[in-house]
């Protein structure tokens, strides 16, 4: 029971308080790059969620049962990036076979997940701070959830920005970053709600 509570609180804390994009600064490139299309933001969020979860599940045993016994923990970065790259390929093939419609809507965002820092960031964070399997999983789940929430909200706000009058110099990315600043301030208000 205690584990369950810690697990759920961990997910909430990683999703809302230590938000991936707004507090830990992972995956800003895709965050800004997806732009103002709500649908592609949602697809991107789902795809990243998939990959983060699978990467967490696979990289934990690899690090603890392969790299450490073999005495080469310093190879973690290389191993992880290879795992993530092949994972993205496999997930892409799987989606293509079972749901061509989803594959089409994910489009170019699928290969871009390999270079999304959120995936490698979570996995590296798990091993660097020596989290247990359950904690790693809650970090993965929470991060994925947080990424989805943030990127979706951001896309919705940017749709509204399209129709609003912004100063000429702020058009496009600068005003998007200001919006991100306000969102970060809003999320900062949640800090201290859950103490782990």
């Amino acid at each position: 029971m205690n584990y369950l509570v810690a697990f759920v609180l961990g997910i909430l804390s990683y999703a809302l308080i230590n938000n991936v994009v707004l507090v830990r600064f992972y995956g800003i490139c895709s965050f800004v790059g997806v732009g103002n299309k709500v649908k592609s933001a949602a697809s991107m969020g789902i795809a990243v969620t998939f990959v983060i979860l699978l990467a967490t599940l696979i990289c934990y045993p690899i690090y603890h049962f392969v790299l450490i016994p073999a005495g080469v923990p310093f190879l973690d970065t290389i191993t992880y990036i290879l795992v993530i790259a092949s994972l993205v390929q496999v997930v892409g093939l799987f989606i293509k076979k079972h749901s061509p419609a989803l594959y089409k809507s994910l489009g170019i965002y699928l290969p871009l997940i390999t270079t999304n820092c959120a995936v490698l960031g979570v996995v590296t964070e798990n091993t660097d701070s020596g989290l247990s399997f359950l904690e790693s999983l809650s970090n993965g789940l929470g991060t994925a959830l947080g990424f989805f929430i943030t990127i979706f909200l951001f896309a919705c706000i940017r749709v509204r920005l399209e129709g609003s009058k912004t100063p000429k110099a702020f058009k496009g990315i600068p005003i998007a970053l200001i919006v991100a600043c306000l969102m970060a301030m809003a999320f900062m208000g949640l800090s201290g709600v859950i103490n782990l």
């Binding site: 707004l22 507090v23 600064f25 100063p167 110099a169 702020f170 990315i173 600068p174 005003i175 998007a176 970053l177 200001i178 991100a180 600043c181 306000l182 970060a184 301030m185 900062m188």
Partner: peptide, 13 residues
Amino acid sequence: PGGAFLVLGIILA
């Protein structure tokens, strides 16, 4: 973190 976004946004503007 909010300050980081603000500074970069203003520089880009």
